[in-house]
């Protein structure tokens, strides 16, 4: 178990270093160079040369990369052209908002998807199974931007039930203090996950029901309820943790859409607005920070997996 966790941790570090390298190389690929992007099209060759010298852009690439790398633990992510602030200063207020949005919708998605999957197995082959599968399928095919737009039209413009977007000055935890404004964003982000997770939950539970230990439990006279909830469900939940870890990059991508649709000032909306202004240091900074957050999230999911699955916990290799 310790060996596995160590390997997994090392792998996460390699992934982060690789992402740092990619982001660094992208920052050096700006057409015309960073100087042109910062100083504007009217900059003279002399000022460009001076800018490059002062910012160390005349050094060999690997030296530049080294300086970039050792600056990261001090959160030196570059300097935003438009905000005229260090990138981290802009990002640090946005990151918690995205984390709260993603976290809340993942919890909601699990809370809905798991019972949904169980219901489908219990009622397998009946009308409610087909109905739920159908709903899941529609949600699955629905792009987040279309679903979000429809919700705004139906619930905000037509029914006037919910506000279009959360208040812009809301604290990161306004999701819990002022839930009404967050119903649509959280639901939209959760919708895709609910569809995929309930489908997976259904097949995972069906697989578990076909295992030998279920037959054993039934043979020993356990009730159907006990077999389902005591034996099958507990084992079927384990793969969901893996799915969660693997789905994180996709869910975080979805947050970009949801934040843009509902004008929620998190990392995604920041990235979109910075890209509109070609504020490349911000775009790359958010990409790096959100990727590190995603990698940490996946790592936590894997650690949870190890803690939950006794086959790994007791060091068995299989």
């Amino acid at each position: 178990m310790v060996g596995y966790l160590l390997r997994r941790f090392l792998q996460a570090i390699i992934v982060v270093l690789g992402v740092v390298l990619i982001v660094f190389l992208l920052s050096r690929m700006i057409p015309g160079g960073e100087a042109r992007a910062v100083l504007g099209p009217k900059a003279t060759p002399l000022t460009i040369r001076e800018f490059n010298r002062v910012n160390g852009l005349t050094q060999p690439l690997w030296v530049q990369f080294w300086h970039y790398l050792i600056g990261l633990p001090q959160l030196k992510l570059g300097y935003s052209y438009k905000f005229t602030q260090p990138v981290w200063a802009v990002i640090q207020h946005r990151l918690p908002k995205t984390l709260v949005l993603v976290g809340t919708s993942v919890v909601l998605a699990l809370a809905i998807a798991i019972p949904l999957g169980v219901v489908q197995v219990v009622r397998k082959g009946r009308a409610s199974d087909y109905a739920l599968t159908g709903v899941a399928f529609v949600l699955y095919a629905m792009p987040a931007f279309f679903l979000g737009t429809l919700l705004i039209i139906w619930l905000s413009f037509d029914a006037r039930l919910l506000p279009v977007s959360p208040p812009s000055d809301a604290s990161p935890f306004a999701v819990w203090t002022d839930p009404k404004a967050f119903i649509m964003p959280v639901l939209t982000l959760a919708a895709l996950t609910i569809a995929a997770f309930s489908r997976y939950m259904r097949s995972s539970l069906l697989d578990a029901m076909a295992e030998d230990y279920i037959r054993t439990a039934k043979a020993k006279g356990a009730s159907n309820r006990r077999v389902l909830y005591g034996h099958a469900l507990r084992n079927a939940l384990i793969p969901i943790i893996t799915l969660l870890g693997l789905s994180l990059p996709g869910i975080v991508s979805g947050a970009v859409i949801v934040e843009s649709v509902f004008n929620y000032p998190g990392m995604g909306l920041l990235t979109v607005q910075a890209a509109e202004n070609t504020d490349i240091p911000i775009v790359l900074g958010t990409t790096l920070v959100i990727t590190v957050a995603t990698v940490i999230g996946s790592l936590l999911a894997d650690i949870l997996y190890v803690l939950v699955d006794p086959r790994i916990r007791y060091g068995g290799s299989f």
Binding site: Q11, I14, V15, G18, V19, I22, L26, M29, I30, P31, P249, G250, V252, S253, G254, V256, I257, G268, T271, V272, A275, T278, I280, V283, L284, T286, T287, I290, T291, T294, V295, S298
Partner: peptide
């Protein structure tokens, strides 16, 4: 395969936006 792991760990839409912004 490490390269694949690394690129896959970046949320796709962030990477796409970065690429589209840099290369127009």
């Amino acid at each position: 395969m490490r390269v694949v792991d690394i690129v896959l760990s970046i949320p796709a839409l962030f990477l796409l936006i970065a690429l589209v912004t840099i290369f127009h």
